[in-house]
């Protein structure tokens, strides 16, 4: 228990210390920045509270795009992994294609999707979908196939069908890997959604707002959006961890 507290207090204390040093201008001194280049935390907070309505609207746009894209991407990635499990020859090709997708730079992907879709939301969902497929298909494939020795034999002994083996063995076995992929994907999804907004044919979303404010030199405004994006990321990550805790209590990572 004490150790748990310490584990929370340390990073928290570290964070607060950084904020303080930032506020009193120590960071500006080290990096040689003027306050208008790097606004202090209180300035960011005030800007944020004055602009909260728009910031939240933008946040909803970005996060909903990120989540929908992540859902699509993760689902497709998982299905590819499942197909690869049932039909190794076919599926493996699919896995390779997906990992090749993953190598496309986000910037290029955003521009491509901009041509394919005419609204900012669909472009964003398209980009996020593509970037979320790879992590899920790789991890899920691993989870579906790296089974403990003899666990399939146990199924064969009672003449279980491939489908039964899938639902009663492979599926639960890959849950920890699926959560690993979701944790990777939530960060990737938010990032990709924001970067896609840099290029999107739209004016809503945190990514556009950050880019637009920073280009106009509205640093406090830009930082306030960064704060909102980070908070949203942390909250979503936290939710996934909570769900994971309850879903895979039995797994080594949860002890």
């Amino acid at each position: 228990m004490k150790e748990k507290m310490l584990n929370i207090i340390w990073p928290l204390g570290f964070g607060i210390a950084i904020l303080l040093l930032w506020q009193v201008g120590f960071l500006h001194m080290i990096f040689g920045l003027k306050p208008y280049q790097l606004p202090v935390p209180t300035a960011i907070a005030i800007t944020l509270s004055n602009n909260l309505g728009k910031a939240l609207t933008d946040c909803v746009v970005t996060i909903s795009g990120a989540l929908i894209g992540m859902a699509f991407g993760s689902l497709i990635g998982f299905m590819i992994a499942a197909i690869a499990t049932f039909f190794p020859k076919w599926g493996y090709g699919g896995m390779i294609v997906v990992s090749a997708f993953n190598a496309i730079p986000l910037v290029a992907l955003s521009s491509i999707m901009n041509l394919w879709f005419s609204t900012g939301m669909s472009q964003k969902i398209g980009v996020v979908t593509v970037v979320c497929m790879a992590a899920m298909s790789m991890n899920a494939y691993k989870g579906l196939n790296s089974l403990k020795p003899f666990s399939v034999d146990l199924m064969h002994t009672v003449a279980a069908s491939e489908w039964t083996i899938f639902t009663k063995l492979r599926l639960p076995n890959c849950l920890p890997n699926v959560f690993t992929a979701l944790k990777i994907n939530i960060a990737t999804a938010i990032m990709a959604a924001m970067i896609s907004e840099y290029f999107a044919s739209s004016t809503s979303g945190l990514g556009f707002a950050i880019k637009d404010s920073l280009r106009k030199g509205e640093m406090a405004m830009g930082w306030s959006y960064i704060v909102v994006a980070s908070l949203a990321g942390v909250i979503l990550y936290g939710i996934i961890i909570l769900v994971e805790r309850n879903a895979i209590k039995w797994h080594a990572s949860q002890k």
Partner: peptide, 28 residues
């Protein structure tokens, strides 16, 4: 389904409780 096997290692499914591990073949 005439066989019952005890393996050299336990081969339990981590996500099932003891009861549900014993239950698995009967379930199938």
């Amino acid at each position: 389904r005439k066989y019952g096997i005890v393996f050299q290692s336990p081969v339990l499914y981590d996500w099932r409780t003891v009861r549900r591990n014993i239950c698995l073949p009967m379930e199938i």
